[in-house]
Write a protein that binds this DNA or RNA. Structure first.
Lengths: 95, 95
DNA sequence: GGATTTTGGTTTATATTGTAAACTAATTTA
DNA sequence: TAAATTAGTTTACAATATAAACCAAAATCC
């Protein structure tokens, strides 16, 4: 019987996990891109990005593309570590 | 980029997933055993078992061991299917 | 043999989350 | 210049997760 390790609740969320999954592989992504890939509503995505950012798992940069606002997300070292730990823990449940 | 499939919210819960994970491998387990293996409080476990049961993912049998109440949980076919589907979907996020 | 603890749970109250809807503000487009 | 689109944020509400409080019976202690 595997021991069921604690699953980081910040990552154990469909949308936040999808965002992290994307960022782990592409390093940085724009808000609109994340919205398309995840099929999330903008509101939901905005909230969840803020949580990941508050936790230090991602870094958010706000700038302008031409005259429109542009939000770009980058994963942090801490974020990568957290994601890896989460995946390891999760495997204990599903493998 | 994998498409992020919908994750069954009933299974996307640390404790319920742990319970299902155990039942998938052992077929049936007693309340106390599940409590020990998952380190859950009895109250939490009771609630989550009821949810899995209401969804038809497990079947709950209440009897007596000697004169003490005994709650035994069995996974159902539907539960196995749901667990497998969940695992497949989840792999799209973490593999 | 009466009080206390333990076992095996359930119920309930609360805190946390997740999410959509409503909103803002600027920018195109018709 | 009015309407629609883009790129988000804020906010209100519903759903979830969880621990604390509770209950009844059985076992243990003094």
């Amino acid at each position: 019987m595997p021991d069921f390790k604690h699953l980081d609740p910040l990552l154990h969320s469909q949308l936040r996990l999808a965002v992290m999954s994307i960022l782990v592989s592409v390093q940085s992504a724009e808000f609109v891109y994340l919205k398309e890939q995840t099929n999330a509503t903008a509101g939901n995505l905005s909230v969840q990005i803020e949580k990941l950012s508050a936790a230090g798992y991602i870094q958010v940069e706000k700038s302008f593309k031409g005259k429109r606002p542009l939000t770009t997300c980058f994963i942090t070292k801490q974020g990568i570590k957290a994601f890896e730990d989460y995946v390891k823990a999760l495997r204990g449940y599903i493998d």
